Amino acid sequence: MKSMQSGRRTLQIAGVLSLACLFGAISYITHKSGPSPPERSTHSTSPEVSQRSESEMRQELFDDQVAPAVREADLANRAAVERCLARIRESFQRYRQGVKPFAEDVTGLGSKWGVLRRMPGDWMTGSNSVEAFISGKLEKHVFSAQEIQHDIDVSLTLLREDIEANRNVMLRKVKTATAGLSLPAIENLDTQTFSHQVVEQVREFSTETAADGVANLVVIEVASGVGGYAAEQVFMAILVRIGMTAGGATVGSVALGGGSGSAVGPLGTGIGTIGGLIVGVIIDYWLSEHAKANLSQQLMALIDQIENAAIHGVPERTNSAIDAYPGLKHVLQNTCDELNQANLEILKQSILEVKA
């Protein structure tokens, strides 16, 4: 009896398992034979959609990666300008350190005798040996025209090197960001080619704004990485305008090359003119101890005037034939503005393939 019940239970379990298997098979077949997903279209996207998507992708890449690289270069350039101006200020601080030794030398017994024995000949012949004597000591202790120009030139040269390095970093970042795109204008772009494009763009800006000749020269040299002439023109602009603001036409004429007998040209006569301004102080006070203090004070004031003119410029005077000079601070800040604008416009045209 017990055996029959056990067999019946086994049959029931087997039947349940069979039904379960049958149900599972039916479900699987039904799922497999259900409605198929829609077939992917084999037709390509319209040219308008593809072009729009690529354009949007390029714009996003430009906004997210290229524009920030340009901004970083701009910030680095402005920091380089501040370093350039700081170097020029340090140069003038070095000149000031020579004022006391110069005053002590030129008011000493040896210099007094040197001036006194030269004065009669100058009065009789109209020569300027006293001025040349004082100027030589000024060059020895304080500065020379060539030294001022050299210091400005060195500062601008280091600035050009900094800006060129910043440009190289920017271009590397741009090339890395656009590596996945087919952009021959970027792929074939080297630093020299890009610099040439920037210079041409800056020239257009200067033409549009009718920029000052000296200021424009500084911008072009800094942008191109090639220099050597801007520093001379900056120094000449400073010297001429200082002479005019001091009311001395002689200073202006000598600075422009009106001096005669100079073996080194207008830059050499420039420092002689500064020496000439100081000679009067020495003679007026007859090389006394009072002259030493007064001489130091006036020379310090002159150095301050030249430094201020170099960095902050010289304003235009009424009825003056000499235009205002904006100064290196303004000129170099404007240089950064123009470089940044040129970088953006060139890269926009190359990446977005549209005229900015």
Rank of each mutant, 00 (worst) to 15 (best):
L302S: 06
P326C: 06
R317M: 13
I306V: 06
G252E: 04
L299V: 01
V331R: 02
V279G: 07
S260A: 13
L287F: 10
G327I: 02
G313Y: 00
W286A: 14
T269P: 04
G265L: 04
R317K: 13
T273A: 13
G261W: 07
G265V: 01
V331G: 01
T269E: 09
G268W: 03
Q233E: 13
V251Y: 13
L267C: 08
D337P: 03
P266T: 10
G313Q: 02
V264R: 13
N334Y: 15
G275A: 01
L299S: 00
L302T: 09
T269W: 11
V281C: 05
E307N: 06
N294D: 12
G313W: 03
L295T: 03
L295P: 02
A230I: 03
I278L: 12
L332C: 07
G272Y: 07
H330L: 13
I311Y: 00
S260E: 12
K292I: 09
L256K: 09
L302P: 05
L332G: 00
M244K: 15
Q333D: 11
G327W: 04
I283F: 11
Q297T: 14
V240W: 00
L256W: 08
Y325T: 01
M236I: 15
A231M: 03
Q333P: 00
Q298P: 05
V254L: 15
F235H: 09
G261Q: 02
T250E: 09
L256F: 12
L287W: 04
G272H: 08
V240A: 05
G313T: 01
P315G: 08
L295Q: 07
G265D: 01
A231R: 04
L328F: 03
A301W: 09
E289M: 14
E232C: 10
E232S: 15
Q333Y: 11
V240T: 07
V279I: 07
V314T: 05
P315D: 01
H290K: 15
Y325C: 02
A310K: 01
I282G: 02
Q297Y: 13
L328M: 03
Q297F: 15
A310Y: 08
L239K: 10
I283V: 13
Q298T: 11
H312Q: 08
S262P: 00
V281P: 02
V314S: 01
G265K: 01
L295W: 00
E289Q: 13
Q305S: 14
Q233W: 10
L256V: 09
A231E: 05
M236Y: 13
V251A: 14
R241W: 08
I322K: 07
I303F: 04
I274M: 10
M244C: 13
V279T: 00
I282D: 02
A324H: 03
I242P: 06
P326G: 02
I282K: 06
N294G: 11
Q305K: 14
H312M: 09
L302C: 09
S296V: 00
P326M: 04
Q333K: 12
I283Q: 11
Q298A: 12
N294T: 14
I274N: 04
M300A: 12
M244T: 14
G275P: 02
T269S: 15
T245G: 07
A249I: 14
T250R: 10
E316L: 11
I238V: 15
G280C: 05
